[in-house]
Structures are given as structure tokens and as C-alpha cells.
Design a protein around this nucleic acid. Structure first.
Lengths: 346, 346
DNA sequence: ACTGGCACTCACTCGTCGTGACTGCCAATT
DNA sequence: AATTGGCAGTCACGACGAGTGAGTGCCAGT
């Protein structure tokens, strides 16, 4: 059974190990922390901690290091979230306020979070599920290529290139006049609609038109439908990969599997999205708790922020299990808050 | 003086070292390549090569490895560019043809090139210097935030968020009616213009308006000007960072400086852009030839491709100096060609 | 110009050994 | 019952040294 003091010992072990990357022994603890008991007593406590699987010894005769379970206990019950320094707060504020548009703000954010935590930073680009069509623009790139641009009221702009049928079938030739007409009709039909309704509306429109126009509208419909689908699966911004190399010694094997997993953004995204935030607004996934084998030696912190349209997107960091959880949780939380504030309409 | 055969020896050394990562000695060469001379003769040639700084010995008594200068000689005079396997060609073709819009095609390209070469792949997103305004769309995100979207005929879409003056100054309040008017006027003024002329035109327009509208137009003008500036400095797509870790042993120190340099996309971009293509359509920068210190142990291959609007953008790979130059040059060239063909209007 | 032979160099491997930082356990103490 | 000092035991780690072998440079002979 782990005593009250035993948990204090665990906290000391985690802190010391995170700071020094050296297995910590009983003597180190009595020297560095004032427990007011002897080394032998600490040893008893450590035996109990090992019994419970919270710490482990790399070799028979060396100090202990926290296990994943030990870190978990530390994060859940022992870590007090440090407040950021005022310098850090200032950095966040000045850094973010210069941003121009959403993409730019998020790009800055992810870089800043990486720098703040010295880890790999992740920011999910938010999706806007229920937004309305603001405008559809058509641009003829060449006789057979058409650019379709969709603007929605939430401020997202999406684009897609459509191949038109070859002009040798005279009836299908598309020129600026035709395009202008189609543009007017399409906009009349779509503006103000939910993006989910775009495809059916266009299909209906195609019905009304003579075959010559119909083909064009059908292609546009397909392009817009594909665009709407695309936005469902959201993207991820990444920064600070170099920090992985910096903490390389924390990955017994190599950082290769970590880098590989990170590049596979789809999988990482899913994992990231499915982490459930606790009451502190942060979620922590430690080492092998993590379903991705490549990340068996990393921990992921995830926080949530609200974009202007109100939905929650994720922001977080990824690094070796031996990381400064207190500091990083604080950083993620602070950045998430600033971001929500910045993006929220006041 | 390096003899004719000496250069053949250099070629053998490069090929062998690239294949095995082991310093190669005279015996290895006579065993593995049929020079028809004895090891002692090879040794004499190697001494000459070393004299000329083309190869070096890591220790007094070990085989030789190519120096940067040796690789340079190899690339310029000794490497025959291997044709790709048909499997590789097929992969390129099928991989690229699925692409939807420009961004998507480039994203696929960079991933494919990374996989093809087992190196870090780079693709420059092309800029379109002389294009015309097709449409400007304004979307009110909140009473004080306005989204400005610029569509040009080359198929690029750019967006930017503008902060409007606070509405408590009654005269500046912006509602949909005002916005509609401004939108009409702005478009009337800008459509068909060169993007370079956007700013002066808008300034002229602002003059004509009553102060209430003027502020809005001025902000829009500033946003568009900034957007136009932004496009000048182009972006870079990256893929295959994990390959760096895979070739980690080729970086005596650590891959840290390499990763750091790569993350600093601006610098990397400039370097990449300034490499001048030779008559083979590829440029190679080897080791310390490279101005960025972080890349002193890497080589960069750059090729060019033509985007639809006709300008040349860059595509390339980055990896350890000990890389398969023949294969990688072939890959870069092949992908660049396919990409040009795919993007070019036929 | 090429070759065989030979002395020499030096990184690398492998065992041994000593050292020191730990632990676990136990009997004594509070 | 908790704590403590003491002590034997374990084991990673670094240093040392000898043996090994790949590879070189040089030279005299063809």
C-alpha cells in the first residue's frame, strides 16, 4: 500500500527525473527534498511504489524512474499547474495579436506553442459544419478547366478545379457569356443556403437547364459536393519537429517511429480528436496508454479552443513521456484560452 | 594529377560508399569492380585522388570516403542519370492523376517524391506575378470583422480578415447594405486590373467616397495590398522528415541542426529558389557548398516545373551528402516533368 | 606503368577489473 | 508500528590493455 508520504516521494521522483534524466535514488531524495526522514525510510516507500507499478528500476541497482502509470498518477493527483511567467503571457499576447486571417493566426499559434513548450505542437484547423453559402465564383482557367470557389459566411474559402468536357463537342463549348449566366443562376440558387444543401439544389438546377448548360452545372455540383466532403475531414498544423531531435535521448530506440507517426497526419488527427478533455480543459495521454505503437514513448497533451463559429477544435503538444507536465499543461491551457478569446467575436 | 582511371576509381568509391556506408579500400575495389589492375595500382590512384581533395580517409588506416568535392565531381562528370523503373513511372502517374486542385496535386507530389527518394522532399507553391483581378468578395464575420477574398484569373484565391473601426462611432457602422454598395463599387473598379494596380485604384476610390465609407475602403485596400505582398513570398511544402531520422547515421553530429534549418522555411525557401538549374534541368548543392551551416552535411537537389500560368517553381529533395545522386536526380526530373505536363494546359 | 611484398598504423573488440551508486534486509530504536 | 543505521550484495559503467585485421605508403623489381 502506498502511504501519503509515498505519493510525495513519487512527486519528487517525477520532478527530479524530469529535470535531470537520471534515475533517482533514495539518497538523492533525502538530500534534495526535506522529508525529515532517513534514506532507509524513503527506500521502504519506494519499494511500495514499485510494488504498485508506479516506478521501476532500469537495472537492479540503480535509482528509479516513473512508469507510465506513475506519470499518470502524477498528472492526475500530484501536479499543480504552474502559472505561466508574465514574460510568457506577454509573448503569447503580442505574438498572436499580429495575425491577419485565421490560417495565419493558427500558423503563428502552433509555432509559438512549440517554442513555449519545447515540444512538437499541434493545432487542428477547425471545421465549420453548419455554415451558409455566401458566394460562388467561377473562373475559367482554360477552355476546359474551370475554377470553382466557394465562400461561406464563417469566413472559409474553398476552391477546386473542374475539368470540363472537351470543346470539340460544339454544344458543350463554354465561353465567358455562358459562364456568366451559369454564375448568376448558381448564385441565385445557392446564396444563403446551408452548405449541406448545395448538392441537391444544384441537381435541381441542372434539371431546369438545356443540356448544353446542364453538363457544366453538373460538374460544378460534383466539385462543390467534393469540397463540402473535404472540409469534414479537418487538417492539422504541426510545428517544432526539431524539438524531437533535441529530446532524442528520451527515446530509447529512435525518434524514427515518432516522426513516421506524426507524418501520418490522418491517424494522428483521429487520436488527437478523440481524446476527452477533463475538468481542467486538458487531456493527457501517456506512453503506452496511447493506441499508436509509434507513440509508445510519447505523451500527448490536448486542449480545446473555440473558433469564431463556436465549435471546439484541438490544440496540443506531443513529446517524450519524460516531459514537464505542469508547465506544458499550463502552456496549452493558456494558449487555448488566448486563442478562443482572439477568435471569439466579443 | 588524376588519371582517367582515377576518375573511374572515384566513381567506384562513391557508388560503393553510398551503397554500404563503409569507407572503401583498394582491396574492396579490385574485388568488386573489374579494373584489371592490382590493388597497389588502385592505391596509387587513390593517393592522387586524395591529393586533389576528392576523397579523404577518416582515420590514417582505413578506406576512403568521398569529400564534398568528390561528390561534386561525381555529380558533374561521372554519374549517369538512371532511368526510373517502369513501376516508379507508373506510381508517379497514378499518384498524380487523382489530384483535385492545385494545392492537392502539390501535396500529393511532395509526399510521393519523398517516398520515391527516401529523402525529405520540397515543393514550392508557385506564385503568379502577373495576374488579373477576377472578383473581390466581402463577407461580414461580425460587426467589426470583415473577410476580404481576392480571386484572380490564374486560379489563386487569397483571403484576409480586416478589423473594422468600432461601431460605437455611429458614422462608421457597417451593415449589409453598406457592404453591398462597397462590394459593387470595389468590383467595378478592380475587376480586370492587374493585381499590382489594386492598391492605387482603391486609394483613388476612397477619395471619391464620403468619409463614412472611406474608412472601410481604406482598410480593404490595406488588406489587399498586404495580400498581394504575401503572395510574393511563396510557401514551401515539405514531406518525408522521417527519412532524416532513417538516415541519421549519416549525420555525425545529430539531425537537430538539419531539422531546425528545415523548419525555418523562409531561409530554406530562399536558398532553394536561388539554386540555378544546369542544362539537365537540375541543380545540386553539396554539403558545405551550401550557405546554411545547418545543412553542411546535406545535399539539396532542385528541379523546376511550370505551373499553369507558365512561371517556374521549384521541386526538390534534401538528404545526407551520402545519397544516391543518380537515382534522386532521375526522380526529381521525372516528377518535375510529370507535374509540368499535368499542370500545363494542353 | 604496374606489381608484389612488407612494415606500419590505428580503430575496434573483447575480456578483466575496480569503482560507486544503488538496493534489500535485518536488528535495534523510538 | 514506524523509523533507522548498518551491511552485504548487485550490477552498470569506465578504464586499461592486448590482440586483430583492414588498409595504407613505399620501394624495388618487372
Amino acid at each position: 500500500m502506498v502511504s501519503e508520504r509515498g505519493l510525495d516521494v513519487l512527486r519528487a521522483i517525477v520532478q527530479d527525473y524530469v529535470a535531470s534524466r537520471e534515475p533517482v535514488g533514495s539518497k538523492t531524495i533525502v538530500d534534495r527534498y526535506s522529508f525529515g526522514v532517513s534514506a532507509a525510510t524513503i527506500r521502504n516507500d519506494m519499494a511500495a511504489l514499485e510494488e504498485d507499478g508506479l516506478i521501476a528500476a532500469p537495472h537492479t541497482s540503480s535509482g528509479r524512474i516513473p512508469t507510465d502509470k506513475g506519470y499518470r498518477m502524477f498528472v492526475d493527483h500530484l501536479a499543480e499547474v504552474r502559472a505561466l511567467t508574465t514574460a510568457q503571457r506577454l509573448a503569447i499576447r503580442t505574438f498572436l495579436e499580429e495575425g491577419a486571417d485565421l490560417d495565419d493566426v493558427l500558423a503563428r499559434t502552433v509555432r509559438m506553442l512549440a517554442q513555449l513548450t519545447n515540444q512538437v505542437a499541434l493545432v487542428q484547423i477547425p471545421v465549420v459544419p453548419r455554415s451558409y453559402v455566401r458566394h460562388v465564383e467561377l473562373v475559367l482557367l482554360s477552355p476546359t478547366r474551370l475554377l470553382v470557389v466557394l465562400i461561406t459566411d464563417a469566413g472559409r474559402v474553398d476552391q477546386r478545379v473542374v475539368e470540363l468536357p472537351h470543346a470539340d463537342q460544339e454544344q458543350h463549348a463554354v465561353d465567358d457569356a455562358v459562364l456568366a449566366e451559369v454564375r448568376t443562376r448558381v448564385n441565385a440558387r445557392l446564396v444563403g443556403r446551408l452548405i449541406a444543401d448545395v448538392a441537391p439544389e444544384l441537381d435541381a438546377l441542372a434539371e431546369e437547364l438545356p443540356p448544353a448548360r446542364r453538363v457544366v452545372v453538373e460538374r460544378i455540383a460534383a466539385a462543390l459536393a467534393a469540397t463540402v466532403d473535404d472540409r469534414r475531414q479537418d487538417r492539422l498544423l504541426l510545428a517544432g519537429t526539431a524539438n524531437l531531435a533535441r529530446t532524442e535521448r528520451d527515446f530509447p530506440g529512435s525518434i524514427l517511429p515518432v516522426l513516421e507517426t506524426i507524418e501520418e497526419q490522418v491517424v494522428l488527427m483521429r487520436l488527437f480528436r478523440e481524446m476527452e478533455l477533463d475538468d481542467r480543459g486538458v487531456s493527457v495521454s501517456i506512453g503506452r496508454e496511447n493506441p499508436l505503437v509509434g507513440l509508445a514513448e510519447t505523451s500527448i497533451l490536448a486542449g480545446g479552443y473555440r473558433s469564431s463559429a463556436g465549435e471546439v477544435a484541438r490544440i496540443g503538444v506531443l513529446g517524450p513521456t519524460r516531459m514537464d507536465y505542469s508547465g506544458n499543461i499550463a502552456a496549452v491551457r493558456a494558449v487555448a484560452r488566448y486563442l478562443s478569446k482572439l477568435l471569439g467575436e466579443e
